[in-house]
Computed example of a mutant assay.
Amino acid sequence: MTQYLIKRLFHAALILLGVTFITYLLLYLLPADPARQIAGRSATAETVANIREQLGLNLPFYEQYWRYLTQLLQGDMGRSWLQKTEVSTLISARLPASLQLMMAGIGVELVIGLTLGVVAALNRNSLIDRGLMIFSFVGVSSPHFVAAMLFLYLFAVHWSLFPIGGYGEWKHLILPAVTLGILGSGWYARMMRSSMIEVMHQDYIRTAKAKGLSRTRIIFRHLIPNAILPIVSMIAIDIGIFIGGMVVVESVFGWPGIGQLAWQAIQRVDIPIIVGVTLVSAVAIVLANLLADLVSPFIDPRIDLKKL
């Protein structure tokens, strides 16, 4: 286990290094001028040049990246160019809201997706199965902003069941979480259906039926526990998808998380915040995948971490 952890942490460090490099390179190649954004439209060329020099934007790419990497290794994620505040402070202030929304969204999509997947598998090739798979396909294909605007209009504006936006009460969480959860549930429904159908043809399921076990016991004791293993890995991948979706959903619903912070930074070309949010997101994805790998042997004892 220790050797496996050391190897995974080493790989994680390389991944995070690559993420910071690619993100910084893409932002460096942007045609937008951060110094102009900070100075304002009416600023003189001399003022813009001074700001560019103060921020080190006049330096070659490798020098800018090396300066950032050196600060990062010392625990300094830099300061926001526009808000004049430490990036770590801004992210830590908004991270709890994003984690709350992420956990609620994953909970919604697991409940909906796994339920639909099990029902579809148990009614394979029926009208129920086809209807649920069509619903899953629509959910997977729908853009986040379309669903967010639709739910906002129906449930907040038209029927006034939930607040239009905000943060603090459970009512504020419902619409953003359901928006993320319904769109993501399609993946889980399709994956759970496929996994259930595959497990149904295993020898131990035939043995359980031959022993006379009830259908309910076979489903909950043998089918679901063995079919759910791919879902664990999907949850880890889903964190990355959620972070991308939360940028849109948090902006639509006014949810004060890191997604909204990233969107504001993108509009203003505030590079330290953009890189900081990207790095935190990458760390979350890497840790989630590591946790999924560590949990998998407890779900399926046949998995040996030494062979991974």
Rank of each mutant, 00 (worst) to 15 (best):
residue 22 I to F: 14
residue 24 Y to S: 15
residue 24 Y to L: 11
residue 25 L to T: 14
residue 25 L to Q: 10
residue 26 L to A: 05
residue 26 L to H: 01
residue 27 L to I: 04
residue 27 L to A: 11
residue 28 Y to S: 13
residue 30 L to T: 13
residue 31 P to S: 14
residue 31 P to W: 15
residue 31 P to K: 15
residue 32 A to G: 12
residue 33 D to I: 03
residue 33 D to M: 01
residue 34 P to C: 06
residue 35 A to H: 07
residue 35 A to Q: 02
residue 35 A to N: 01
residue 36 R to S: 15
residue 36 R to N: 12
residue 36 R to P: 11
residue 38 I to S: 00
residue 39 A to F: 01
residue 40 G to W: 09
residue 40 G to N: 07
residue 42 S to L: 13
residue 42 S to F: 13
residue 43 A to I: 11
residue 43 A to D: 08
residue 44 T to L: 08
residue 44 T to E: 11
residue 44 T to K: 13
residue 44 T to Q: 12
residue 44 T to D: 13
residue 45 A to P: 06
residue 45 A to M: 12
residue 45 A to C: 06
residue 46 E to K: 02
residue 46 E to G: 00
residue 47 T to W: 01
residue 47 T to M: 07
residue 48 V to P: 14
residue 50 N to E: 14
residue 50 N to K: 14
residue 51 I to S: 04
residue 51 I to D: 06
residue 54 Q to W: 01
residue 54 Q to C: 00
residue 56 G to Q: 08
residue 56 G to T: 01
residue 57 L to K: 10
residue 57 L to H: 12
residue 58 N to S: 11
residue 59 L to D: 14
residue 59 L to H: 10
residue 59 L to R: 15
residue 60 P to I: 10
residue 61 F to M: 12
residue 61 F to A: 11
residue 63 E to G: 02
residue 65 Y to V: 01
residue 66 W to Q: 13
residue 67 R to E: 12
residue 68 Y to Q: 06
residue 68 Y to R: 07
residue 68 Y to S: 01
residue 69 L to A: 13
residue 69 L to M: 15
residue 70 T to D: 14
residue 71 Q to T: 11
residue 72 L to I: 11
residue 72 L to E: 10
residue 72 L to Y: 09
residue 73 L to W: 08
residue 73 L to A: 11
residue 74 Q to E: 09
residue 74 Q to Y: 02
residue 74 Q to M: 03
residue 74 Q to T: 01
residue 76 D to Q: 07
residue 76 D to I: 00
residue 76 D to R: 04
residue 76 D to T: 02
residue 76 D to K: 07
residue 77 M to R: 05
residue 78 G to M: 06
residue 79 R to K: 08
residue 79 R to I: 00
residue 80 S to D: 04
residue 80 S to A: 06
residue 82 L to G: 08
residue 82 L to K: 15
residue 82 L to T: 08
residue 82 L to P: 04
residue 83 Q to C: 00
residue 84 K to P: 00
residue 84 K to W: 05
residue 85 T to R: 14
residue 85 T to N: 05
residue 85 T to C: 01
residue 86 E to D: 15
residue 86 E to N: 13
residue 87 V to Q: 01
residue 89 T to F: 07
residue 89 T to C: 03
residue 90 L to N: 05
residue 90 L to Q: 11
residue 90 L to H: 04
residue 91 I to T: 03
residue 91 I to E: 05
residue 92 S to V: 09
residue 94 R to Y: 01
residue 94 R to D: 05
residue 94 R to N: 10
residue 95 L to I: 04
residue 97 A to F: 03
residue 98 S to V: 06
residue 99 L to Q: 06
residue 100 Q to C: 06
residue 100 Q to H: 12
residue 100 Q to M: 12
residue 101 L to I: 04
residue 101 L to T: 04
residue 102 M to D: 08
residue 102 M to A: 15
residue 102 M to E: 11
residue 102 M to G: 14
residue 103 M to S: 09
residue 104 A to Y: 10
residue 104 A to I: 05
residue 105 G to I: 02
residue 105 G to C: 02
residue 107 G to C: 02
residue 107 G to Y: 05
residue 109 E to Y: 12
residue 109 E to L: 14
residue 110 L to V: 05
residue 110 L to E: 03
residue 111 V to L: 14
residue 111 V to K: 04
residue 113 G to M: 00
residue 114 L to F: 06
residue 115 T to C: 08
residue 115 T to E: 01
residue 116 L to W: 13
